[in-house]
Design a binder for these strands. Sequence first.
DNA 1: CCAAAAGTGTTCCGTCTACACCCATGG
DNA 2: CCATGGGTGTAGACGGAACACTTTTGG
Lengths: 225, 225
Amino acid sequence: MTTYYNEHQKFLVSVDVIIFGFDEQKLKVLIGRRQMDPGRGEWSLYGGFVSADESLNQAAAHTLEKLTGLKDIYMRQVGAFGDVDRDPGERVISVAYYALINVKDYDEKKRVKHGLEWVDINKIPTLYSDHNLMVGRALTKMRQKIKTEPISFRLLPSLFTLTQLQRLYEAVIGEQVDKRNFRKRIKDMDFIEKTNLIDKKSSKRGAALYRFNNKVYNEDPNFKL
Amino acid sequence: MTTYYNEHQKFLVSVDVIIFGFDEQKLKVLIGRRQMDPGRGEWSLYGGFVSADESLNQAAAHTLEKLTGLKDIYMRQVGAFGDVDRDPGERVISVAYYALINVKDYDEKKRVKHGLEWVDINKIPTLYSDHNLMVGRALTKMRQKIKTEPISFRLLPSLFTLTQLQRLYEAVIGEQVDKRNFRKRIKDMDFIEKTNLIDKKSSKRGAALYRFNNKVYNEDPNFKL
DNA sequence: CCAAAAGTGTTCCGTCTACACCCATGG
DNA sequence: CCATGGGTGTAGACGGAACACTTTTGG
């Protein structure tokens, strides 16, 4: 292969993933103690270096898979972070991605093995490098998306109650919403289907379980919360 | 300096800038014929490699300044583009930025010297590498921003008529809006100030010139179009 | 029988939209 | 005197927000 751009500087490039999960009425992020120098022991996002044979998206997907064992995780780029001194070790340009997973799909053994914790989005400690900034940007992006695209379902089990959906939405946007108005909006979306199944765990009376029907959604992709 | 991350691959990193301008009722982008191999002669965005002593933002700002001679250009990151084969020459990871300038501030000599042309956003030819994708993403981002933040003024002279402002807005969102409704919304924003000056170029009667007052805006930053 | 969550409609108010005519002036 | 763009108000439709009570059942 010919090299055209010889004279220019090359950089380490990493991806850092902000993994969101929803649990016990709270929106959480997976973070862990950094296991290498520099910054060993500090709270940090999970990340990895990009290798020559993978695109940035692939690198992020691989990182997510390595961490969770899950494939086809919903994932979006947050942006590139490139301050000269952002990494105390050496110059590294990092591309952040956020991902949404259902906490129950995530094997606890894997979580512990990687030394990760689910931390409430409102109680995030100081993180390594510029990771707090990354989390903030990711949240902003996700908040926008969740109002116009059906990504909530990525954070919930495939069967869920309307109360669960509402609690999730409230946790993401950070404010409470009116139950009747919320359910009215849901009723207008045909791709959120009521099943015959009843969830008896959450209440004595039991709550109807709903399902997101992606096929119906694709016929008329209109989502608005 | 200690090196911590020895074993990993390094990459060329570039920035590519999507420079928007508004002229003759049209939203335009600055593109030029690529002046190096590979892809010499193809239409392309302007870009440059990132060097060791500058952040990504600085690299983008430098690229913009080199090109236009202007400082303090409004500029936002679009995102990182990192497909393995995106550049036909060698692997390059590129971070795209969009920028807004007032066409009249831009020295024509500089434009010609760099071989650049203002091209209507609706008539963009096939560009080098993934640059069409970058432009599309930049437009989407800019369209969102222009509805909630006072960035329109970056594309206009410091004194402008309401018709100019409306034409700009229409060009960006790609549809026509009602004159009276538009002006009603503008009236509600105190930071868009009417001056005593009259523009006589655009019509026989003359049109009042307005100005964006940033100080007033900062006291109550509410913008909604 | 009672605590706890599920489920359900209506009214009001503010916002958005549609719409048409007169004004001032240069040529 | 007329062509051209500048400037202005109102009424009706629509969508979002506020709001309270009944149902079911496990313990």
